[in-house]
Write a protein that binds this DNA or RNA. Sequence first.
DNA 1: TATCACCGTAAGTTGACACTTACGTAAGGC
DNA 2: GCCTTACGTAAGTGTCAACTTACGGTGATA
Lengths: 106, 106
Amino acid sequence: MEAALKAIAEPRRQAILRLVRDEERTAGEIAEAFEVTRPAISQHLSVLREAGLVTERRDGTRRFYRARPEQIKELQRFLEEFWQTGLERLKAAAEWEERSKRRGAK
Amino acid sequence: MEAALKAIAEPRRQAILRLVRDEERTAGEIAEAFEVTRPAISQHLSVLREAGLVTERRDGTRRFYRARPEQIKELQRFLEEFWQTGLERLKAAAEWEERSKRRGAK
DNA sequence: TATCACCGTAAGTTGACACTTACGTAAGGC
DNA sequence: GCCTTACGTAAGTGTCAACTTACGGTGATA
């Protein structure tokens, strides 16, 4: 989770993720889409894989990569924790106020 | 946006964000919560402020910081872009299949 | 089995960044 | 007009990470 956030914070890896979002691609295909060397992309792919953001499928000498939406969803849930609990507290505060109003009315 | 992702990827800044999520706190109060020096926290606060993740309010010599949920929400929307469009394509594909079924039935 | 295609790994370099200590600055209190 | 309080900023340091070039390993192919 921590690793996933750091992984997706890197612009190059974001671009890679978008490339393999809908269809799997080989490491070579991905590397051709960028102007950096192939090893650089290979290292990025390792980071993404260890962060659980992509899956790797081997076929012969080739390796196919594909995005893993579940992990991205996990990231969203993580971000929700920051403000959703804030909302929950607002909600709880509102309910508390409601109860005290009724107590006052009685 | 890019800056916000990098900012929130740092564990220490996540902790700071949680501290000022519900109530504003001074830079000094925040610094006391950690075991690093005050300047270190001050620098983190600058990063968070430039990323739009916190607001700064000055009162005398003190500076109050508070989380900005809208920006965090922006981050969520950014993450949605990764898989939501994938869902939209699935939906579009399903509808397309539906139409071709009807064409086949006629 | 020799070779080629496809890819990861090793090692080194450079820049970014999370810290430190030292210093500067602005607002109140006496 | 000081002196304290509450900060940010400057400058230096160590570490990590994104790249490079060079090399190794594994699977198809003739």
